[in-house]
Design a protein around this nucleic acid. Structure first.
Length: 308
DNA sequence: CAGATTTGACCCAA
DNA sequence: TTGGGTCAAATCTG
């Protein structure tokens, strides 16, 4: 376990300890509400789950699915709704991009897994653009919800392969689903969190790692604990993650070498095999890393041992 | 043929 | 001025 993992583990254990102390206080107060105690208890359990996951992740070379937070900045407690902020942004299309908050996930594609893991999020994504970003090796794909026009669903996501490890996808989510598909797929708890402002969502998710269950996500036994299957994270993986072409470059010139090498071609096959969101096929993806906020300061170079 | 993808052009915040 | 994000026509696919 590297320093980073160790620090996270210690932080999580301290959080659990503090929460336990809070619970102890509440238990000694006769008029303390049951809901408060249950909430604290749940957060303690989540803290334990996360701690164990960190340990498992660090001790196993690969294949363990661990959501780990990377907060760009401490969650705001001001009560302002950042969801609303980027809803406004998206409502005006590309004309407003100022400080759009987003969630980022890192997904490891394990070629050896075959079609073992659950991938699909139940949402339909339609690709509307692809671009090479300065200083990156791989193109970034831009996706929006298929129901954008019909139902005005403003959810979008960006998918890009990691520079350091082509088997890892960086997926950034913006906005939240308001389409019917979301109401069919998401659990009530997720619906509730979707309706909350993002600050309170982060406040719940980051410190305690509250992971509501969904009906879609079926984590593999022994590799996911139930509390890890947060739909808000796990539900967002789509089979139509990427496309092989390079913007501005003729398709026939070189294709995308990043997708034709090693696991790349395999990944393409996997993804192309599952082309619709209603196809809940299992795909050989390994969810290695998830977080709520993209941290631009985080790089794999800064954490060389993170995925080792 | 309808829906999805590709890709060059465009917009605009930084 | 630059570069990230989006548009939309062309193209592809089932």
């Amino acid at each position: 376990m590297g320093d980073w993992g160790l620090k996270n583990l210690i932080a999580e254990l301290r959080l659990g300890r503090d929460l336990a102390r809070q619970l102890q206080i509440h238990l000694n107060v006769p008029y303390s509400s049951r809901e408060t105690c249950e909430m604290l208890l749940q957060r303690i359990l989540n803290s334990y789950e996360k701690s164990l996951s960190i340990v498992n992740f660090s001790s196993s070379g690969s294949g363990t699915s661990v959501p780990i937070p990377m907060t760009e900045s401490p969650p705001s407690l001001t009560g302002s709704s950042r969801n609303e902020d980027f809803d406004h942004d998206l409502r005006d299309g590309h004309k407003k991009r100022k400080s759009i908050p987003r969630r980022m996930q890192l997904v490891r594609v394990d070629p050896g897994m075959g079609v073992g893991g659950s991938l699909d999020d139940g949402f339909s994504w339609r690709k509307y653009g692809q671009k090479y970003i300065l200083g990156t090796k791989h193109p970034r794909g831009y996706y929006r919800c298929t129901h954008r026009n019909v139902q005005g669903c403003l959810a979008t996501k960006q998918v890009q392969k990691s520079d350091n490890d082509p088997t890892i996808l960086e997926i950034r989510y913006r906005g939240s689903h308001t389409c019917n598909e979301a109401t069919h797929v998401l659990s009530p708890s997720y619906q509730q969190e979707q309706s909350q402002d993002l600050d309170s969502f982060i406040e719940q998710s980051i410190p305690s790692f509250h992971f509501p269950l969904t009906s879609i996500v079926k984590p593999e036994p022994h590799r996911f604990s139930p509390s890890m299957a947060d739909n808000s994270f796990m539900s967002n993986f789509s089979p139509s993650l990427m496309s092989p072409s390079r913007s501005g470059v003729p398709r026939s010139s070189e294709g995308d070498e990043s997708f034709s090498q090693n696991s790349g071609s395999e990944l393409n096959n996997i993804i192309s095999a599952a082309t619709s969101a209603t196809n809940y096929s299992t795909i050989g993806f390994d969810f290695r890393f998830m977080n709520d906020e993209f941290d631009p300061n985080f790089t794999f170079n800064n954490n060389p041992g993170f995925f080792s």
